[in-house]
Amino acid sequence: MTRASNTYTLVADIGGTNTRVALAEGTVLLKDTVRKYRNSDYPGLETVLQAFIAEEDGVDCKGACVALAGPVKGGRGSMTNLDWEIDDATLARATRAEKVALLNDLQAQGHAIGHLPSGSVRTLVDGPAAEPDAAKLVIGVGTGFNIAPVYETPGGRFVPAAEAGHANLPVRAEDELALIRHFETSHGFPAVEDMLSGRGFERVYLWLSETRGTAVEKSAADIMMGYEDGSDAIARDAAQMFVRMLGTVSGNLSLIQLPFGGIYFAGGVARAFAAHFSDLGFLEAFRDKGRFAGFMQNFAVHVIEDDFAALTGCATYLEGR
């Protein structure tokens, strides 16, 4: 179909394996336009976007915004495992859009809050009613780990970038200390996402199995299945260790950011574990802050279940500029 010129925004979300591209009208994502492209099939972002535009009959967009899983600075983004030129100039050249922007993927998730379709956000832990301008915190757990604080200001929403997955893991117990020492030996530095990510969950399982006599490598999906069907005792212990560390780290971040407007988990790993938070001790670890344990009840906890939230966030960000 032929679409009107200078009406739509092109939005994209670059992951480690695939890139999703779609159109939005204002802050509303047009889900029927979402297409997924395998990164290995394309030499760069420009060719991906050009392929999408061609499939949309050469649509002339008024704006374009791309979210990527990596740091963005000075109109340029970088990803650890993807050798693409990702910058404002490439985006403008590929789309011919007058207004372009790059965001970290967690920033895009932060801009999406409040603009997602009904039923896209599920509450895991209730909290007190929040003021409209209360700060929020997005915590992404998937291929990696990162956060994005969300602030409501007189000039509009402000979502600064972060690289929280590369901070040190905290230690509360002897088994955590032993695991962190194992990470130091294997990776040189015990970063948060060395544990709190999909591959981190696999590493926890491998370490636990090794300490019990036989090292066993399993995928995160298989470990989760073993926990959920009760067939693998090590899987349950790995899941509990993972979730309790996630509770500890999330509690620390909440005391730093004070998200009285709520914590919002995003990412495939977070969604997979969310249903098991109660059983695996998330809330106990989250609120285990000594004399501030009662204060931790101020923070509601939610999970974003919309797989296209970053695309909606891109559209919302551009609409507000």
Rank of each mutant, 00 (worst) to 15 (best):
A64H: 08
C65S: 07
V66R: 01
L68H: 00
L68S: 01
A69H: 04
V72F: 02
V72P: 01
V72A: 03
M79Y: 08
N81P: 08
L82M: 14
D87A: 05
T90R: 05
L91R: 01
A94N: 09
K99H: 13
K99S: 12
A101F: 05
Q107H: 00
A108K: 08
Q109I: 03
A112D: 04
L116V: 12
S118R: 15
S118L: 14
V121S: 06
R122H: 14
T123D: 04
L124Q: 06
V125I: 15
V125R: 14
D126R: 15
E131A: 15
D133S: 11
D133L: 06
A134L: 11
K136S: 13
L137Q: 05
L137H: 06
V141K: 00
G142I: 04
T143V: 04
G144Y: 09
F145A: 00
P149L: 09
P149T: 08
P149Q: 07
E152A: 10
G156L: 06
R157A: 10
A162M: 09
A167H: 06
A167K: 00
E174V: 14
E176F: 05
A178E: 14
A178K: 13
I180C: 09
R181M: 14
R181W: 13
H182I: 04
H182C: 10
H182D: 11
